[in-house]
C-alpha cells in the first residue's frame, strides 16, 4: 500500500515538473523564436500595412467597408468589417429573415448598377463572408460594378476594366483555387488615377 502511495506521489511530482519544463520549451522558446523570425517578414510579423501619402489606410489582408458609389464595394459583412471582432452571419440556408436580407441586397445592387441583369450578380456580392473581413470579391463581382464606377468618376470604362484585370490575382501557381479581386488595392488604384489627372 505504501509503495502504491509513493508511486502516486512520484507520478504527481513528475507531472508537475514535466509541465513546467514543457511550458518553457513550448510557450517561451518556441513562440519567441518564431516572433523573432517574423521580424523579417513583410509587416515585421505584425501584419502587412498599406499606406497612402505616408498614412496607414489599412492592412493588406483585411477587407474594409466600402459603401460610397464611387468605390468598388466588397462583400456584405456580418460584423461591418470590424477587425477586432471577426465573425460570419451564421444564418442557415432556409432562414426566412436571411433570405429577405439577400433579396434586399440584390435590389440595392440593381438600384446602383441599373445596367446589369439579375443573372449577372454573383453569389459572393449578396452573401456575408465567413470572417466578415473578406478582402476579395470574385471577378464577376467587380465586372458588374465597372459601369457605375466609370460613370461616378467620369473616367473611361476601359480604364476601369484594366484596373480590375490588374488587381485580379490568378489561381495559386496558375493551377489551384479560384481567382479573386482585392477590393482595397483596386480602390487605391482608382484613387490614384484621379489624383494623377
Amino acid at each position: 500500500m505504501t509503495t502504491n502511495k509513493n508511486k502516486m506521489k512520484k507520478y504527481i511530482i513528475q507531472s508537475i515538473r514535466l509541465t513546467l519544463v514543457l511550458i518553457v520549451l513550448l510557450c517561451v522558446l518556441y513562440p519567441i523564436s518564431i516572433a523573432l523570425a517574423g521580424r523579417f517578414s513583410k509587416g515585421n510579423g505584425g501584419g502587412e500595412k498599406i499606406t497612402k501619402n505616408g498614412k496607414v489606410i489599412g492592412y493588406a489582408l483585411l477587407g474594409q467597408s466600402f459603401t460610397k458609389p464611387e468605390y468598388f464595394w466588397g462583400r456584405p459583412s456580418a460584423v461591418g468589417y470590424n477587425a477586432a471582432g471577426s465573425a460570419g452571419s451564421n444564418k442557415g440556408p432556409s432562414n426566412p429573415d436571411y433570405l429577405k436580407e439577400v433579396s434586399n441586397r440584390i435590389d440595392t445592387l440593381l438600384k446602383y448598377n441599373p445596367t446589369i441583369k439579375k443573372a449577372d450578380i454573383p453569389a459572393d456580392m449578396v452573401t456575408a463572408s465567413g470572417s466578415g473581413l473578406d478582402p476579395n470579391i470574385s471577378e464577376q463581382g467587380a465586372i458588374i460594378q465597372i459601369k457605375r464606377i466609370a460613370a461616378y468618376r467620369k473616367i473611361d470604362e476601359r480604364k476601369v476594366t484594366e484596373l480590375v484585370v490588374e488587381n485580379t490575382s490568378k489561381p495559386f501557381l496558375g493551377l489551384f483555387g479560384p481567382s479573386a479581386v482585392n477590393v482595397l488595392k483596386l480602390n487605391l488604384a482608382l484613387d490614384e488615377i484621379i489624383s494623377k489627372k
Binding site: P93, Y98, P122, A123, A128, N136, Q140, P178
Partner: peptide
C-alpha cells in the same frame, strides 16, 4: 431569386478559398 451561384453556395465562405 435569379442570381448566379456559378461556383457554389457563398454564405459564410471566403472568396480566396471558394
Amino acid at each position: 431569386m435569379g442570381i448566379s451561384q456559378a461556383t457554389g453556395a457563398m454564405e459564410g465562405k471566403e472568396v480566396r478559398f471558394g
